[in-house]
């Protein structure tokens, strides 16, 4: 349970980090270390070089510009947790971050690290899918943007090239006053969800649902946007009955199976949790502050 031998690099600038990444063979980027360090300790990964991003300047910030929330890759999860902009302007992210690990891991864990690790049940990954986030990566020739829909290419595999570093994520914000809820089922608080549901709702002056986004995490190799469910509720008035009926479509989603739960159980959770998320996002049910456990 000790990391294997490696060479350690701690660049101070993004350019320096990109340069190292482009020239060193078998290098791994170390962000908050809440996933890579366990993998090193257990020797699941054996890098020749570890490039530590913790001393790189300019990668830790939360800012809102023109209706878009941009978060630097090395922003710690606890900074998101305590951010007033996030709480007021991006309530889905605020709710989700409280369910990411524990205070001890959020103090170190980063936004960019979680997105790159791309665990199918990770809360931040689901939020990125729900909000149609844009991923910003930096390479030797400049910056490149990736739509989140194109970001996961396979199980835990992001569409980032070997010589690129994720430097920021942009979340387009929904209208002020929109409804949002992030609910998940986990065996213990702070665990990765077995299944999670993220819901966003915008209603017009007459109470009709004008816009909806529903994302199920933990069910496939990456979070799934349930377009059929989104289309089924847009144009209608929010009600428990509408959500109960419409969320049944989640039982048809392709689902993974593992030691924690069979596919049929995940499909059941998807239907139940999407309904609960929509009920909370629309104000039919009170917001639950923590995960279901």
């Amino acid at each position: 349970m000790k990391p294997p031998p490696f060479q350690y690099h701690d660049p101070r600038t993004i350019a320096e980090a990109v340069g190292l990444l482009g020239t060193l063979e078998n290098a791994k980027l170390l962000a908050g270390g809440q996933s890579l360090m366990p993998m090193l300790n257990m020797r699941f990964v054996l890098p020749d070089h570890v490039i530590d991003l913790n001393r790189v300047e300019g990668l830790s910030y939360i800012k809102e510009t023109g209706g878009v929330l941009e978060i630097g890759a090395m922003t710690r999860q606890y900074e998101v947790e305590f951010s007033e902009i996030v709480r007021t302007r991006c309530p889905l992210l605020h709710q989700a971050i409280l369910q990411v690990g524990h205070r001890q891991t959020r103090n170190r864990g980063t936004v960019g690290g979680s997105l790159c690790h791309l665990d199918p049940a990770a809360e931040l990954v689901s939020v990125a899918a729900a909000l149609d986030a844009t991923i910003v990566v930096t390479n030797a020739s400049g910056r490149r943007e990736i739509k989140f829909a194109d970001f996961p290419v396979a199980y835990m595999t992001p569409a980032i090239e070997q010589n690129e570093i994720l430097t920021a994520v942009r979340f387009p914000l929904w209208k002020a006053g929109h409804g949002a809820a992030f609910v998940e089922f986990a065996r213990r608080h702070g665990d990765f969800a077995i299944v999670s549901a993220a819901a966003l709702l915008e209603r017009d002056g007459g109470g009709i649902i004008a816009r909806a986004s529903i994302t199920i995490g933990g069910i496939g190799s990456a979070p799934v946007r349930v377009k059929e469910l989104e289309e089924a509720i847009v144009g209608k008035t929010a009600s428990a009955e509408l959500f109960r009926t419409a969320c049944e479509s989640c039982r048809k989603l392709d689902a993974i199976e593992d030691i924690h739960a069979p596919a049929s159980y995940r499909q059941h959770l998807a239907a139940v949790l999407s309904r609960r998320a929509l009920e909370q996002a629309s104000g039919i049910a009170p917001q639950s502050a923590t995960s279901v456990h």
Partner: peptide, 8 residues
Amino acid sequence: SARSCLLL
């Protein structure tokens, strides 16, 4: 607070 097994 941080986990010292996950820090170098």
